[in-house]
Computed example of a mutant assay.
Amino acid sequence: MELQEKFVQSVRMYFNLQGEKWLSRLPEIIQYCENKWNLQMEEPYALSINYVAPAVMENGSEVVVKICIPGKGFQDELAVLRLYNGKGMVKLIEYDQDNGIFILEKLTPGGTLAEVHDDEEACRIAANVVRKLSVVAPKNCKIPSVKAREDNLREIVEKHPNGIGPFSKKTLEKALNIFTYLNNTTTQQYLLHGDFHHYNVLSSENNHWTAIDPKGLIGEIEYDLIQYMLNKLPENNAYDVIKKRVEIFTEELNLSEQRLLLWGYCHTVLSTSWSVDDKDNYETSFFQGVAIFEKLYEEQFGYIDEIETWSE
């Protein structure tokens, strides 16, 4: 079985020995899947770190099979899919927790939101999907909260006392203080997608749009929008595009612009830090967002550098 080269590299990079063992078992898991559900899997889609392919059931109906490395990530995604139960999210048909398998509805025609060329139209579509996904988090939910992201940034600060990539220690600490302030002042927790962006929203029947591939997170809706705003930015004029996206999201979803911009700043520092490799290369399109969110904030609310305000 010949696997996509980029897929194999990504699995090995993120999961090391566990990923290598999983890749060697993948043909066996696919065969198990076909036998268990009486389906025939077809050629996979372009893969990242999960094996995802369309399939045809014995009765002729079409589904999508997603095979993941079993563990916490799979369990979080399973919990999110079950909680949303098809509301704004792809429907879960069956699953096998031991082997990390999801059987999902197939969305048709299935084009991504990235294919909508009018950015404002795409943003309003995205806002409508987020509206459907805006579910108050259930009590005693085991899905990670945004506090885990704050803790992750704290680990980065401690591990890199002289800064990381393009960031000084001062910038990392400023972002961490804002993360802490926002988490400490959150009044309503929602179930979040956790990785909401253009490529995780697909077209479905009757001109509807549906989210896929949730990571699962608990927090404010404002936080769940930042990854979308960092994606599919033009080479020039990213400031105006992000500014307009902020306007549309706050208007359509009745959100706090102040908190949205603060989440934008601290999450963009975090996501850029995630992208730094051992040669100090990093995702420049994310990095530009740091200055943009800071500028947008200061135009409306004053200096973001007044860190002491956040901890009072």
Rank of each mutant, 00 (worst) to 15 (best):
S204A: 15
E120N: 12
P214G: 04
K87C: 12
Q258F: 00
S203Q: 15
I164P: 12
K66M: 00
E283W: 12
L261G: 09
M229T: 03
S311L: 15
L39C: 08
Q9G: 03
D195G: 05
G302R: 04
G219K: 07
V8T: 04
I156R: 00
A126S: 11
I49E: 12
F7G: 00
M1Y: 10
L261W: 04
G71M: 05
V56S: 13
P27A: 08
A53K: 08
Y32T: 03
L92Q: 05
A137V: 00
L202E: 05
L296C: 09
R131S: 14
H197E: 07
K21T: 11
N59Q: 05
L83T: 13
L153T: 09
E120F: 07
A122G: 02
A211I: 03
E150Y: 13
L182D: 08
L255M: 10
N177T: 11
L113N: 07
R259T: 09
F74G: 05
I292M: 06
W263F: 10
K147W: 11
Y199I: 01
D277K: 01
S134V: 02
T187N: 15
V52F: 02
D118G: 04
L225I: 03
D96I: 03
L260W: 09
I212P: 04
P144Q: 05
K147R: 15
C68T: 03
N35P: 08
E94R: 08
K243H: 11
N237D: 15
D151C: 09
T180N: 14
D240S: 12
V63F: 06
T284R: 14
G165S: 07
V11R: 01
F286D: 13
K169W: 04
Q300S: 15
L26P: 03
P27W: 02
F301E: 09
K232I: 03
L153H: 04
